[in-house]
Each structure stands twice: as C-alpha cells, then as structure tokens.
Design a protein around this nucleic acid. Structure first.
Lengths: 226, 226
DNA sequence: AATTCTAGGTTACATTATGATTACATAAAA
DNA sequence: TTTTATGTAATCATAATGTAACCTAGAATT
C-alpha cells in the first residue's frame, strides 16, 4: 500500500517539484499551499508523513507543528526551510521535527531522509493504511472504523471483510462460491446458505431502514454492489 | 545523568574537535581512532550513541555498523563522511544509520542532530517535560505520576506504558501484535493473552467503577481509545 | 390467474471464538 | 528476605458466526 505524504509549501514551484518527484518515487502526495485544510485532511486521511515549509505567509510552520503535537498528532514531520542557521534548526527540532532539510536541497537526499523517517516511525502502522469508500460508506483500515454518512457504526470483523470485498469488486456480481473462497477461506466446510445470512446481517447494519440498497441480490447468481 | 557518546574517526584533529565540543555540550565522550576496542567498550559501558566516520583505514565504517547490527547491537549511529553523494548516503542509511552528516559539517547542526537522535532513541522513556492528557487523565512524564480528574492514582510502569501508547494512538484500534511490539519489546516470547490481562488491570485502575469507558475492546481486533 | 417450484429472506437456536476474570506462578523491586 | 508487579493457565461469560427450519416473493408452468 502506498504511503501518504502531506506537503505544505507556499512556493508553488517547489510544491510541484516535490509532488512530481515523490509521486514518481511511489508515494501518494497531497500538496497544499497553506495550512488551511491540513487539520481536516489529517482527520480524514491516514497520513504517514508531513513535509512542511517553515516559512509560510500566514503562520510559522514550526508553530503549526507544535500545535499539532499538542493535539496529540504525532505524525512525523520533516521541516523544509531556507533558514539554515543553527538557531533555526534547533528550534525546528524542539518544535517536534523528525528531520530538517535546508533549501536548496538535493532531491535524492530528501528521498532518503523521507525513507529513513518513515522506516523509523511508521513501518507497522502504515502497512495497510488507506481509506476505502463507496457512496457515503467509508472504511478506515488504519483505525478499523466504518462510517456511514459521517456516523460511526459498530461492525464485526466478518462484516468488514464482506464490505471490503464487495467494494473492491463493485460493478461485478459476486456469486456465493466466490465470496466463500475470498472471505471465508475454508470454503469447503461452510454451506452456501451461510452467505445469505451474513449478507442479511450486513445489510441490516449498513442500511437498517432499507432505503439505500447498497447491496443488491441477483437472484440465481449472487450479490452486487453497483 | 550524562549520556555517553562513542566516536570513531581516524583524523585526530576532527576527533579532538568533536571530543571538545561534545564534552562542552554535556556529553560523556569516548573517542577512538579505530574500531579495535569498540566492541569491548560497548560491552562494558552503556553507550547511547555512536558517531562513526565512514572512511576508516582498516575497515569501512558502514560495514562495521552492519556487523554490529547483525550482532543485535542497536545503539543509534550517526555517520560522518566526506562522501556526500546520494548513493553513499543511501548506503549509509541501509547499513543502519540513524542520521548522516557530511564533512565539512557545522558543529551546531551536528549537536542538534545528536540531540534529535538521542531523543528519538529515548522517546518512550521520557517525553521530556511534557504532560500527556486524555480527557481527565493526566500523565506527568517527569514525576511519573498519573492523575484522574485531579486525583493521584497508583500505577505501575507497564500500565503507564500502555496508557501512553493508547493515548498517542487515540482514535485507532491497536491490535495485540502492535501492542506487544511497542510495549513489551520482546513480543516473541509473550502470549497475546497477556495483553488482555494487562488491559483489564489498567482499566480497573483508571476506571474502577466502569463508568468512563476510556478503553474500548474491539472484539476480534484489539483495543481502542477513541 | 392460479399453481407450483425455488431461491433467498427471516428467525431461532447451536456452536465457536474471543475476551474477561480469577487464581496462581514467577520475576523484579524494595 | 518481603513485597509488588507481571506473566500464564484455567475457567467463565458472551458476542459473533454457522446452521437448520420455516416463510416469502417472484419466476415458470399450466
């Protein structure tokens, strides 16, 4: 799974350069020219690393990160700054940086530092990151939560597994044999009827009022998320 | 408590410079011109950080560190090198470096990087001076005390460790494998059931009346502090 | 349209898996 | 040593899941 890097830099040239290079290096990049939507994005996406310019017009990048740390957001941060004085670097580390790179920087070195920071901090958490969505259903694999229209719902392991398979095969009708094979691994010892019951239970949870019809039954074949 | 830094550099001028500056900065410095006695010192002294020149006459510093890592010596290492090519830096990180500084270096910056690496290394133990909070739970990392709603509670080392990990990962379900890896370091030799018992004991302490539900059990997955 | 047939829904119950609890053993600290 | 903390195993409690019996709706046949 791709790791997500959020970048904030008010210089659009540098931002583009970073976006291009980090994307090429296989990261999922979210670039911003200011901090306006950062909090929101952090709460919605599972971000693995933040690269932040320290000299932003509205707010000092260092202060912003300090604020994030106070809110118990401990995603690793690499500061990017034209200022290279010892005092600045020191301040950066104190504010919670994990590394500090001065402009102009060498892209290869930055990539290596990114790799090192990610390895150090995030190897376990980010292995299955990402958010899956279908209409107003959202599955956060990192937090292992499912929300529908923003509201959190209680859901079991099996139900999440079904939901994931349905979403990642949306548009295809999945027959019971397929579902047993992919969700219940030991399809041998389990009756096909079991799928019906499991589906009913899942439908009940994600759409108790029977209004959305997320999952449609295709008589004689199987189930479809269109 | 002074932290111990071991330095290996065959250039005696640089070695002296480092010894002088790091000592002034309050570290206990052990300088060597070659790797001859390093193994022995490591086994006798509690070294917190190694600063190693990559271009040593007898052996490549990178290879030496690789060897240490293979022997399960995981003391953080900062490489010092005249070589600054991307390829070299990459190789350094691959061999197990925690940071990489190219010569000629700025002493102030080096000091900051040392501080950062040490802080990372000791991060779990002492989040210097900081106070962690979650709802009405407050952990004072200096005093090693926990108060709930202002009232001091008796709590053990392990329980604090769990609480810290739960708080710094709030909003995310932590499975037993993760908890074992991060709290009990030698996850190999410990049963997953142990986590259940530890959690029960922690819950008992922080919420004896079962009213707050600070920590929620996610059946089939792990534990969540939301 | 009425009848039959069948797939799937629904419900109730059985089984299984997982976590909580307890008691005790062992390790660490005082 | 004594005391305290922590790990482990046995047992208990319950939520999650599987199964079977029955019900219903829609397609096929008449």
């Amino acid at each position: 799974m791709k790791e997500h890097i959020l970048i904030v830099d008010d210089d659009s040239d540098i931002l583009e350069l970073l976006e291009y290079n980090l994307s090429s290096a296989g990261y999922d990049v979210l670039g911003f020219l200011n901090t306006k939507y950062v909090r929101q994005v952090l709460s919605e996406e599972s971000v693995d690393l933040i690269i932040m310019d320290r000299n932003l017009p509205e707010i000092d990048g260092g202060l912003y990160v300090e604020m994030l740390r106070n809110k118990n957001i401990n995603i690793p941060v690499i500061f990017l700054s034209a200022k290279g004085s010892a005092e600045d670097i020191k301040d950066g580390f104190l504010k919670g940086a994990d590394d500090y790179v001065t402009k102009p920087f060498n892209m290869d070195e930055l990539l290596l530092r990114i790799k090192a920071v990610l390895k150090r901090y995030h190897s376990e958490l980010s292995k299955n990151g990402s958010v899956m969505e279908y209409k107003d259903i959202k599955i956060d694999n990192n937090m292992r939560t499912v929300t529908i229209d923003g509201k959190n719902i209680e859901i079991t392991k099996l139900e999440i597994a079904i939901l994931k398979v349905m979403i990642s095969n949306q548009g295809r009708v999945l027959d019971r044999e397929f579902l047993l094979k992919h969700i219940w691994k030991d399809s041998e010892n389990i009756r096909q009827k079991t799928v019906n019951v499991a589906m009913k239970r899942l439908k009940e949870k994600i759409d108790p009022l029977r209004q959305k019809e997320y999952i449609k039954t295709i008589r004689g074949v199987g189930y479809l998320m269109s």
